[in-house]
Design a protein around this nucleic acid. Structure first.
Length: 137
DNA sequence: GCCAACGTTGGC
DNA sequence: GCCAACGTTGGC
């Protein structure tokens, strides 16, 4: 079981919309970055990911689960990139903000802090557990 | 194959 | 709205 963090701008695709998509979830398309793509390809069914709101909110709103493994993205005419499907699992009771993450020294190594532009990132098990605790679950 | 120029992302 | 960081593009 691996853990991840995926980012979305809330006015484009928010946590609420992810929840509304229900059990079948939604495909995470539009990734056009090779590091992000490598992470997508490494994801297994059932892997969990934090759903992070960039720009507005700047907080982790909830947890999603991989419901379909990496497959080609039809919106990419070059055929190089792909996507996975995610479905909403549960919200954090208290959203964990970027501020809170920065103030926690144990999370200083998170990719979110050091490479804020990467849209799909790995999260270590320790980081995962700590953020879950901070989020009240 | 190098590197400058440009575009995009995302925090502030 | 600004700008730093990063990725990509394109001329050489």
């Amino acid at each position: 079981m691996a853990y991840w963090l995926i980012k979305s701008e809330p006015h484009k695709w928010s946590w609420d919309m992810q929840v509304a998509a229900g059990k079948k979830g939604t495909h995470w398309d539009g990734v056009r970055n090779h590091s992000a793509k490598l992470h997508l390809m490494a994801m297994e069914l059932g892997d969990q990911a934090f759903f992070y709101h960039s720009n507005e909110g700047k907080e982790i709103a909830g947890i999603v689960e991989v419901s379909k493994k990496f497959y080609p993205d039809p919106s990419d005419e070059s055929g190089k990139f792909g996507m996975v499907d995610f479905r909403a699992m549960k919200p954090l009771k208290t959203p964990v903000t970027l501020d809170a993450i920065k103030q926690e020294s144990k999370l200083a190594k998170m990719v979110l802090v050091n490479n804020s532009r990467l849209s799909v990132q790995p999260v270590s098990e320790d980081e995962w557990k700590l953020i879950c605790k901070m989020g009240g679950i």
